[in-house]
Amino acid sequence: MSIAILYALVGIGLFCLGVYALMIHAHLLRKILALNIMGSGVFMVLLALAGRTEITPDPVPAAMVITGIVVAVSATALALALMLKINAITGRAELNDAEEK
């Protein structure tokens, strides 16, 4: 097992933790945190698998991950703005279906 595989496994762990938190938390800020951690896990798998070499790693996944980080921050900003809007309308930073059950 090489270091690249170790980091890929950590990435998978982060992704699964994120999915779990996304499902069980009702608070939207926590859901946004969970999405970000899921994204970090995916980036980690991508870059770890690009590092399966002795020489310089593959630059294509690195470029994709940089693009991904920038897209993630813009999605986070939009999600946070939507959360504040929902909070301003309903008084709660949660989605409605949480209280139906």
Binding site: I5, R52, T53, D58
Partner: peptide, 17 residues
């Protein structure tokens, strides 16, 4: 399952470099 998939990959790959 994902971990198994990663462990099945070849340990060395140069990709598009």
């Amino acid at each position: 399952g994902l971990g198994y998939g990663v462990l099945q990959l070849t340990p060395y790959a140069t990709g598009l470099s």
